[in-house]
Design a binder for these strands. Structure first.
Lengths: 384, 384
DNA sequence: ACTTAGTATTTGATCGATCAAACTTTGGGA
DNA sequence: TCCCAAAGTTTGATCGATCAAATACTAAGT
């Protein structure tokens, strides 16, 4: 098998110099059309392709974004990362970027990985997920001026760190809308089934429910608290709690749940108790929610991915902007330059009981906007 | 910020040559211990790290494995790829390899991506998933002698292609064991709920059930066919079918199902019909199965990942072996050098009805071997 | 015709590592 | 003591591209 052709070979065939070939590849507009044509013909003739390693070495850019694959992906919402990854990979490819995976045992190890990948010129930027309060990774990335975007806003003190770019899903808006939907159906005693207080994400979602409830019924904080149940993430835990609740006195009409896991647990308990019309709404719109006909708030991960890349590379750029780079409209346009808050959409299904999920019968509408993604889903065949 | 140190800098500090530094990094055993010590000290002092791009350019190895992220990951078993990816990334890292993702719109586009990634020296090898009959990707990879391993065996004609390395989960063994389990519990009228005939994976799984049934009850093919129901993948479809079945005459005791989606549909129908002790067993042991307490056959994706890398890089190698390379025991050890068939394990839960899944109460045993992975699972928090 | 500014193209150096071959040191053995 | 093979180390070339600067070419202006 012959050597793969290089710029040199192309140059010879097209009777131009190396550099001209390089220019045709990287800034075609500065090459005279006639020349460009010859070069392009030569490229096609030889089946030439750029050697990525050589290019990276010279340009000091890897055109690669690193993302840590979360260690625990067995949970019911593991698919969130999965879908995000997919959207990201696809959109990154359109901008000539690749996604590289890595794993880490803990946050400190993750920083160590960052260092290796950065110093080795393996990646140009990182995407950080599962951010938490006083996150050491963020501190390191900012201190080292390594480009990054986090999927998940910073909670706590450094909420407004000027150098922290982030994308997030607006949990508030999601559950505000979910609650409005239930109110619109005439329900009044709508409970919230959340995680223990203190989780930024969870609190934010609950605030969406709370706001809708206050607007509609003028409840005070004490009354809201009475309508709230809290559990650790997990189907069985959630299920037991709601079973206990149904066994005792209670007067709820419906439940807005912080996640699909929690919602599924609740739904199973509701079903067991024979409450045929007791709506339950989850969050994430996981495959399970689709499968059992659970209403849920859908994160639009393609939009999240788009936002991630916009922050990293500008609206249409094909390279990662240096950390702290003046962004397009830094002066004019407020926080848009540093954040993206994606509004999720509510997908309504017959989630109060385990009835047949018949496409024609289920009301899979989107309250915020009309689209076709959710309705057109198919279950894919096994991988192997 | 100063330039990152290079081998040259390290060499200067350690008073040796570039090459010696390189040797310490790549074949430490050929460097005299005293020298090695000095070099290592210099590396530590300067915080030196190898530049991956330069190394790749020179060695013509990217130390990267490419894998296509399947376009449709909304299905209930999308997490199979997800978990496989995770295991793979982790184990690849231990061998100094990275995983790079890409997407493609169809099989031909995927081949086009292969070509670009290969020619660009972006990846050393590919992992192919979702293989199918007369797969053009496989043909191309073999013809071009690009190293690859498929997760999923070749179905049809090229089953024994000498240059096709593959890893797969033994669906036959999985459902054989599942069926034996039910027989052991005294059940006799055990039905099979599968995909339409013709899917290699599906047929293989059914054969496991069929073999166990023949062994135990001496059924003939016609009788087996009577016990078989078939559906396209998907919860609602499966559910409707089983509802119809229950509405009509039937005398089944239990169902072995080709996937968790199908099993979940069946389970919902069973539940609806009030059949409190009608076992259902699925395949994949997805998060959903865990959540609703569905017995299922678990693919051991860490083993699949390990097998993938063994085939690609040898038992402990740190680089991809050339396609068609003589493998360790090519003469002596039969097909072990080209395939890995991973035996899945049955995870038994209270899958006949939607009852509380209480850890202490559920019998989450592994029939094949005892381990702790499945039992120790937690649901992870949301990503953001 | 002759600068001149701008456009188009070429040349030489370089990114940071490893390969291949040359050179130097070391330790026995005759 | 001298020689030689083996072990250890250094030197020069190279992987394939892009950068930076130099050169060649065009087209307009006087």
């Amino acid at each position: 098998m012959a050597q793969l052709p290089t710029v040199e070979d192309v140059a010879r065939v097209a009777s131009v110099s190396r550099q001209t070939v390089s220019n045709v590849l990287n800034s075609p507009e500065i090459v005279k059309p006639a020349t460009r044509g010859r070069v392009e013909a030569a490229i096609a003739e030889l089946g030439y392709r750029q050697n990525a390693s050589a290019r990276r070495l010279r340009t000091r850019q890897s055109s690669t974004i690193g993302i840590r694959l979360d260690p625990v992906t067995n949970g019911i919402s593991g698919s969130v990362l999965d879908r995000y990854l997919h959207a990201l990979t696809e959109q990154a490819a359109e901008r000539g970027m690749r996604i590289m995976l890595f794993t880490a045992t803990d946050l400190d190890d993750e920083v160590e990985q960052y260092r290796t990948l950065r110093d080795g010129a393996d990646v140009d930027a990182f995407i950080v997920t599962a951010t938490r309060y006083a996150d050491p990774r963020i501190d390191w990335l900012i201190a080292e001026r390594v480009p990054f975007v986090s999927f998940g806003r910073p909670w706590g003190a450094d909420m407004d760190a000027r150098n922290h770019l982030w994308v997030d899903v607006d949990g508030f808006a999601g559950h505000y809308e979910a609650t409005r939907h239930l109110i619109g159906r005439g329900l009044t005693r709508i409970g919230y089934f959340g995680w223990p207080a203190g989780s930024g994400t969870g609190d934010e979602r609950r605030r969406g429910w709370a706001t809708a409830m206050v607007e509609a019924f003028g409840l005070d904080e004490a009354q809201l608290e009475l309508l709230t149940t809290r559990t650790e993430e997990g189907v069985p835990q959630a299920r037991r709690l709601i079973e206990t609740m149904f066994a005792a006195e209670h007067d709820l009409d419906a439940l807005v749940c912080v996640s699909d896991s929690v919602a599924l647990g609740a739904m199973m308990a509701v079903n067991e108790a024979g409450r045929k019309s007791f709506p339950v709404i989850g969050f994430d719109n996981t495959a399970v929610a689709q499968a059992v006909g659970l209403s849920s708030v859908e994160q639009r991960l393609d939009q999240v991915a788009a936002g991630t890349l916009e922050l990293l590379m500008g609206a249409t750029g094909r390279r990662v902007l240096p950390h702290g780079e003046e962004r397009s409209d830094d002066e004019a346009g407020g926080p848009d330059t540093r954040h993206r808050l994606i509004t999720p959409k509510l997908v309504v299904r017959r989630s109060s009981h385990l009835v047949p999920v018949d496409e024609s019968e289920s009301t899979e509408i989107e309250s915020t906007e009309v689209g076709s993604t959710a309705a057109g889903n198919h279950y894919r065949e096994e991988m192997q």
